[in-house]
Design a protein around this nucleic acid. Sequence first.
DNA 1: ACCCCATGCAAACAG
DNA 2: TGTTTGCATGGGGTT
Length: 605
Amino acid sequence: MEDIQSQQQPTEFDPTEEEQVIGAIMDDREIFLDGNGDEHHFDVNDGSIFYADFPPLPDFPCMSSSSSTCSAPSLAKPFPTSSSASSSNSAASWAVLKSDVEEDVSKKIQPPATSMEDEDCFNDLGYMNMMDGNEFWDPNCTLFQSDQNPVQDYNNMSESFQLPQDDNEERNKAQIEDDGLSFFQEDMRSIKLKRSAIASASKRLGGTKEGKKQLLRLILEWVSQYQLQKKRMSTDASDSLCQYQHPNPNPNPKSHFQYNTVDPDPSACFYPTPPGPFYLMPTGAGFVGCNGPSFTPTLSQTVINGNMEYQSSTMAASQYNPLIPENDCYFTTNATPHDLYSPYPYQLFDENGERLVRLGSSATKEARKKRMARQRHHYRHHTHQTEHQSQSSDQSLRMVGENCTMFPADNPGNWVYWPSAAPSPLMMVPPPEVPPTIEETPEMQQPQKHGSADERLQGWKMEKNLKFLLQKMLKQSDVGNLGRIVLPKREAESHLPELVSRDGISIAMEDIGTSRVWNMKYRFWPNNKSTMYLLENTGDFVRANGLQEGDFIVIYADTKCGKYGVKVRQTGPKAEGKKPAKKNARNSSSAANSSSVAAMKQLMK
DNA sequence: ACCCCATGCAAACAG
DNA sequence: TGTTTGCATGGGGTT
């Protein structure tokens, strides 16, 4: 059973081939036959369990040229109010959400949503070399595409299952072995994997026998967890569902979209308070509304505070929320909490032949033990959420912050195992801080350490849910004691809420690095027959981050949480040429961007 | 010529 | 008197 052997070369797979039962990859012994149809049918079609095109990296997707490139001028908003694309394509839940927000807020501040305009913008900007596709922002996108609706195949196993406690994982794994064939006979029998998918996954795992073993191990483990969970759920299914709660569960979708005022409860998203040993982090898949039932069943595993959860995220949404239209998008309100906070580290995706395996943590016991040790270590030292806010240097915090999961920085649950060929972007890769320009090559934007840049980048896309809005290289006047930052006009008009009053609007701006939320004010001044846009109340923010002239702030729209995020990028000691901008462009953002790109390239080296 | 925006500066405000 | 607020100015890039 350990011997995984594909019947084909990993790299050679017939696109027309039929599904291949799991057993077929195991030592050529047909241990598992195709399910008889009335059992759990793990019909993992090509393109369903593999997903190669991660959501776009929201880091600097639109450069200053965006406003000129994007068709929507000043009224184009990150949170469109009346975008036909948005209203027509977004899920019904979003429509409800939108209306709620519009009724309640007074200044046309809309929750983050994606508009086709924005997508086009991204495309036009050539950012798609990173974004690859529109699925992330496309309300109609199928984040995990599949020719078939895997939910149908998952109808009988769509419970979102979890592992018990992490301490039990060893037992679980042991049980995998102990149960032996009985284990397989129940569920593995019905798992079908397309040969190409297997081949691809195997290839991703190195194409070696060991890699195949690893693949099988992952599958087995996943199914085993399903087995365990199924047993549990048979006695108390609801417990399983209720065990995971949003840190700030609130049935009112508006709770996620406090746009006009600072969210009184930052924990609504930005300050999660794990309710207990379990804390689910929202995944892009489950949260962002671009995954309908066609969402790929993924082998998901997350270890959170020493606990592990396995979940097939969209299955849960499908099962527990039958209102979710197929192939449609749904936003948070339609998704069950379970769905919304589904982890995903175990993932095998496929799309258009470009395969990517994102495997879970248990590739080796050795590695897992190390991770668990790290988790315990971190957990001992960080038991209170408030402490997390000072972890701006913590890479994991950065990542989760950008992912809107607001996972505690010390929370080790954010780890994933990444095959050596594709190191985890979460753990190893700092985000590219420089918005990619058209002329920028992907290599320039990507970390250099592990794995291919493309794989890492895709992982990034998967993790992030932030949409780049604008960035600004701070001038002396921005970091002075005036407490205001002039924003680039075009970007402000294009991507920030429309201002109808000179009083402006309050914007809850989360510092992505620290998870701290700053209540800023976005407003404009008339200026020389034109308009000047500013962020006010930035003094504390600037001081807290020690921002200086030449540093950058990048403003994002958090599409999951409906808030704004700001990321600071400090360019270090202001010794050399700290006046790079030197008014070298008319648009400060353009100037800043172009100059900052160069500066950042230096920094990233 | 137009526009953007960094910043100067004075009025208003607060302590 | 110090700080904040709001507008004006003008350098410099773009059209």
